[in-house]
Write a protein that binds this DNA or RNA. Structure first.
Length: 568
DNA sequence: AGTGTGACTTGTAAGTAGTAAC
DNA sequence: GTTACTACTTACAAGTCACACT
């Protein structure tokens, strides 16, 4: 057994060594990388003959390429997108490119196209999928599992790692968010010859499908991606990278929170600095200081410039325009109020009124002088200038670090402030603290479609519980009276039983009411993004330990101590 | 067994930010 | 400075799944 123990010890030490594996300083991200390449989108399957397309009321058989693009539209027919002019216009334009010359001459007006049979067909298909037998469903599940096992993992250095997105995006119609000028355009099919493979030289290279070639196979260990291709809508590059549970993502995430912690140490100094800069003689310095104040105080994003006409018109701090703010010297009982109203990332509206210090207000008035609504508020500033400045103030500091820092510190403060008595209330407290962060970061969601109904259902439950409670209370009262009269053991027991029942129901009622409050407050607020990307998990862990709350957490997405996601 | 629901996953768009070339 | 390009993080919606409830 001495041998075995020795072996175990050796293994343990190997493991240790592995864990302490030096991260190289030359910017290389890995030494060895092997994977099976991407899963390509399945080829197009033509519609069965009975599914017809009509143009101007007349049956029209489409060529396969034209039919495929038509099905993309048909699949979205119930979606609001297909009612939008821009979407229809862009779709129609790209669709025509796929038509034969005969089709082009016949089809001249999208409004005369009837996609309903196609749409019905796909609906029936998805219905049929739902109705499949357990066996059939299991088969599909097993097949998916097989593909996952084969393509969903790679080996990076000494570890088998889960890949985030190992499937190439299938062709379809581009769904931009907000008022996107390119919505409805055709996202074309990606072929092997469009794909760049990245892996190490000494690995087994992924094979392209029979008779086809990759665009390129490279061995660049300065990057973390395994596969890339250029997408045709914006001409940007898409990547296949590792899952958040991977070492490479986890370490990066850890670093992010460490940088935020370093900011915590010097944030007072930085704040004093930008307040001082509000008085600067230089316009560019004052603009920088006011912008930084917004980023710090309101957790605004940096706001890179965007190419006009290529994307939806959204802004961040540095790209704010005159039209996005209004100044009120007096508003109600407050002085120097700034009203923000603009579309941020994903075209989510940011609306806020904030009283600012007089000096900020005067600066803003100055920045607005002689400008048109569509002019930049901070005309002497951009994200590059701002980040260069931040870099000088603290190593590794950029605008987004403020968001991370302020989100995490807000959670910590709110948890301290809000945490109260019993467990359901504690969970409500946690969610409220989380909500404060989501509000700070403006993380919104569309109210769930079923919100009203599920709220009603919950209310019904509460009402029923209430009735049950008063009934049980009555019974308790009855039991008490009976006990007073008889003074026997049996009636005494009854009183106890009823007392316990009342208590239990009270607890249940409270829990339901908490749930209702929680859900109502959460109607249009998305907690997931902050949980996933902004809240240092150590804060939540500490809170749970402190209050002796059992931390049930789901480790699938990101991993313990490195990137944990959903707490509670 | 069927259905409604919330929890969790997947998909991919839309940001941030660094680098390099002019 | 300006711009193009690249790599990576953050974002919401939609899809899927498991489970409670009828």
């Amino acid at each position: 057994n001495g041998k075995k123990a020795k072996k175990r010890k050796q293994e343990y030490e190997d493991e240790e060594e592995e864990e302490e594996e030096e991260r190289s300083t030359d910017g290389s991200k890995w030494k060895f990388l092997e994977h099976k390449g991407p899963v390509l989108a399945p080829p197009y399957e033509p519609l069965p003959g009975h599914v017809r397309f009509f143009y101007d009321g007349k049956l029209l058989r489409l060529s396969a390429p034209a039919e495929e693009v038509a099905t993309f539209f048909a699949k979205m027919l119930d979606h609001e997108y297909t009612t939008k002019d821009m979407f229809r216009k862009n779709f129609y334009k790209d669709w025509r490119k796929e038509m034969t010359s005969e089709e082009k001459s016949k089809i001249t007006d999208i409004n005369k196209c009837n996609f309903t049979e196609m749409s019905e067909y796909f609906k029936a298909q998805s219905e049929a999928r739902k109705q499949m037998s357990k066996d059939e469903k299991l088969k599909i599940k097993e097949e998916n599992e097989r593909i996952l096992q084969e393509y969903g993992f790679c080996v990076m250095d000494n570890h088998k790692e889960r890949i985030g997105n190992f499937r190439i995006e299938p062709p379809g119609l581009f769904r931009g968010r907000g008022d996107h000028p390119k919505m409805g355009m055709l996202k074309r099919r990606i072929r092997p010859e469009d794909i760049i493979i990245n892996c190490s030289k000494d690995s087994k290279h992924p094979k392209p499908p029979q008779g086809m070639r990759w665009k390129e196979v490279r061995h660049d260990n300065k990057v973390t991606w395994l596969v890339s291709w250029t997408e045709n809508i914006q001409g940007s590059i898409k990547y296949i990278m590792l899952n958040p549970s991977s070492r490479i993502k986890g370490e990066k995430d850890w670093q992010k929170y460490e940088t935020a912690r370093r900011l915590k140490k010097c944030v007072d100094r930085l704040r004093a600095q930008y307040r001082e800069d509000w008085k600067s003689k230089e316009m560019r310095v004052r603009q920088r200081a006011v912008a930084l104040y917004f980023i710090d105080k309101l957790a605004l994003r940096a706001g890179n410039e965007k190419e006009e006409g290529e994307t939806a018109d959204t802004v961040g701090c540095c790209s704010l325009r005159v039209e996005h703010i209004k100044l009120y010297p007096k508003m109600d009982d407050q002085e120097y109020v700034v009203e923000f109203d603009f579309l941020g990332k994903d075209s989510i509206r940011y609306y806020n009124k904030m009283p600012v210090e007089k000096r900020v207000f005067k600066n803003l008035q100055l920045f607005l002088e002689n400008k048109q609504p569509e002019d930049d508020l901070f005309d002497r500033l951009n994200t590059s200038i701002l980040n260069k400045h931040l870099q000088e103030l603290m190593d590794g500091l950029t605008a987004k670090v403020f968001r991370t820092y302020n989100a995490s510190i807000t959670l910590q403060q709110q948890l301290k402030e809000l945490t109260s008595r019993d467990i359901p209330a504690k969970i409500l407290s946690y969610n409220r603290a989380n909500r404060a962060v989501a509000i700070l970061c403006n993380h919104q969601r569309a109210a769930p479609k079923t919100f009203e109904k599920s709220m009603q259902n919950l209310q019904t439950k509460i009402d029923e519980k209430q009735k049950q409670l008063s009934a049980t209370r009555k019974q308790l009262k009855g039991a008490k009276t009976e006990h007073k009269a008889s003074h026997d053991d049996r009636s005494k027991k009854m009183v106890e039983v009823k007392r316990k029942a009342v208590q239990r129901i009270e607890e249940q009622l409270m829990k339901l009411q908490m749930q209702a409050t929680d859900r109502e407050e959460n109607k249009q607020i998305a907690l997931g993004t902050s949980k996933l990307n902004y809240l240092d998990p150590r804060i939540s862990v500490a809170w749970c330990v402190n209050w002796n709350i059992i931390l049930t957490f789901w480790c699938q997405e990101k991993c313990m101590g490195v990137k944990s996601t959903y707490f509670l």
